[in-house]
Amino acid sequence: MAGSPMSPVTGRTHLAAAGARAVTLRSLESTDRGDRITSAVFLSLLLLGIGIALLSLAAILVWSLIEGAPRLDLNLLTNGPSTVRPAEAGFRTALLGSIMVVGGVIFLVVPIGVGAAVYLEEYASRERWWNRLIELNIQNLAGVPSIVFGILGLAFIVRGPLSLGFVAAAGSLTLTLLVLPTVIIAAREAIRAVPPSIREGAFALGATRWQTVRREVLPAALPGVLTGVILAIARATGEAAPLLLVGAVTFTTVNPGLFEGAYSTLPVQIFNYSSRPQADFRVLAVAGVIVMLGLVLAMNSVAVWLRNRFEQSW
């Protein structure tokens, strides 16, 4: 009778079923002890990494809020700098300078960076050597120290062909060159993440390459592009070294113009205050850090808001 579907349920069958169940359960329960320890160690290492990152960030924030608290007043934003009255001096000119310089960077870097990324991803043929050369160069540029861009800015933008002089626009252009590779690389990643089936769908409906890019690829890539822009904003706002070379003077009490007059930016001003001996100036410098963090946060939250609006899951 063995094998017949009609065979009655015997004691032996019960026994076999119970045995099979027990084996299955044991195989599900018993992970090797060694394996369990390894994964626990690995998990705690990961948590440690996150912990260090979060703790140091929190430490900076808390420390600067405590240290800078005595000077967190409106004068900090509305008054110009002073070398004699640290208790009333502020960051007005530096804040305006930073907004001007970073605003200019955003204005320039988005179209140029996205344009370059679109060309490289959608138009350029990888078979051509010059396209590969451009790619390689962009990747290398992303790793060039910022001071080199400062020298470049001094030679070609402040003096040389453009001869803008030591003005905010020169700082803007220099920082644009600095963050451009980051934006291009991020935008390329974002464009590449748009599924090829979307392009095929558009082409099959008789869209030209430009229509496909303009109406389907770019809107879908926008969130990723904005991530690159966020990184660029943060970097441009915090950068001091190249600006020192292109004229961000440490002390100006007159509001800057884009193409005329001296300008300063927050990091440069903070550096200047912090190197003074008096304790009041050091408090002022820390308060400046808070202003700068606030500025970065404000600009980034706009970008994050935009990114979330256009977020797309496939």
Binding site: P195, I198, E200, G201, A204, L205, G206, A207, P219, W314
Partner: peptide, 18 residues
């Protein structure tokens, strides 16, 4: 481009635009 306006195509995996 003109060819594809006259000769449409439907793909293996549905690919609506987002």
């Amino acid at each position: 481009v003109e060819v594809r306006r006259r000769i449409g195509m439907v793909f293996q995996k549905p690919n609506p635009f987002p």
